[in-house]
Design a binder for these strands. Structure first.
Lengths: 207, 207
DNA sequence: ACATCAATGTTGGCAGTGTATACATAGATG
DNA sequence: CATCTATGTATACACTGCCAACATTGATGT
């Protein structure tokens, strides 16, 4: 029996609908504080329907995190592409993109990196490989910068880790609310990201 | 009536016992996945006794995070004190202490920074002021380094933010499992922290 | 010494949660 | 058109956070 005329028994695209609705809920209430039942209601479906598409709540969270990693790689790659041949600027823009994405999606960022997902319960290979994609882009960027003589001839992995840590740390401090008032508006964040990355490039020691 | 002879109706120090037991549980199961009832049982007390000491679960988590921030300021300050008069080394050791603490207490670190605590529901002033203490130590360190001509004459807050971000990012990547295999042992982490911070000091650009 | 009180503990209950199981429906396939 | 399988529902259970009512006891003032 239909619940209303016009609605069908089968939803049609519940998988994606659930993810989209869950992202909305997470935005409103944080990654911690939303329930599958609430989500099901929001999607207009019985409270066990989600289990046909996700093994459990953890799996749903993992799927959302995965989309987060995908857009992260996408955005940072786009940022880098706009300054092909200029590794220094590429690095700066990549970092800005990273931090801006975090600012726009603080709860999702926390979901991705904050330990909300039990990685022992889910395969996690997808998650890891997506995260690796983002990191690999950075590695390539550094490598090409080294070869064109812009970056120092240190171990590439180390340079990549340093730049990643810097940008990631800034992003996490912002999403965690540690920089309230200092960096919660878009232009402040752009500005800070750039300055901080320039510091990393130039060094903070007097020469 | 006593539950056993020798045990008293009043626990005596339930507040601290709860915090200690909660930390243990969080270590085992993550900051997300422990229940107040489980905690109460572990402390040998009825399932509502914790409410005499903490307004709700969130308040308990906040109290735990607060202890985390306290030991963070303590450890980093100690690290800096051992190299008084040598700002460069102070900065390096402070960073190492920060990251090592995170490595030793990944779940607590996630609790502190990961967005598990609803800051709208609890006063949070305590939390913030503790976090500020840690940051202030860094600011002082940078300031003295600038005055002795070791660090560049950039805005102090900016230099502090850059170093904090770097170290914090590394710490969060480690606790989030993003650096599995690269940095999960104590000596690897010490080594990486140092190298990464040296990069920040020297810069990554060719001169 | 004793009554009183506030702090601290317990019992019981409620609505809400994740998830397992059994059943219902309908789109796809032969 | 019969059948299968993917997808959705109904029901049930143990567990959760938290509230309200009651119990115990160490501290306090007289």
């Amino acid at each position: 029996m239909n619940k209303r005329s016009g609605e069908t028994y089968h939803h049609g695209n519940l998988h994606d609908t659930l993810i989209a609705a869950a992202i909305e809920l997470i935005r409103e209430k944080g990654p911690n504080a939303f329930s599958l039942r609430e989500l099901a209601k929001k999607a207009g479906v019985s409270h066990t329907a989600p289990y046909r598409h996700f093994k459990d709540k953890n799996a749903l969270l993992a799927a959302i995190a995965e989309t987060g990693f995908k857009t992260l790689t996408e955005r940072t790659r786009n940022a880098a592409m706009q300054f092909e041949g200029n590794p220094k600027q590429q690095l700066i823009e990549t970092g800005i993109a990273y931090v801006e994405l975090a600012l726009d999606n603080p709860e999702i960022t926390q979901l991705m990196f904050g330990g909300f997902i039990d990685t022992e319960k889910c395969p996690k290979e997808n998650l890891d490989s997506e995260a690796d994609n983002a990191f690999q882009g950075l590695v390539n960027l550094i490598e090409s910068g080294k070869q064109s003589g812009v970056f120092r001839n240190e171990e590439t992995e180390l340079l990549a880790l340093a730049t990643w840590s810097m940008v990631h740390g800034l992003a996490m401090l912002i999403t965690g609310g540690q920089l309230c008032g200092i960096a919660d508006e878009q232009d402040q964040v752009r500005n800070l990201s750039e300055k901080v990355e320039c510091l990393l490039m130039e060094g903070i020691l007097v020469r």
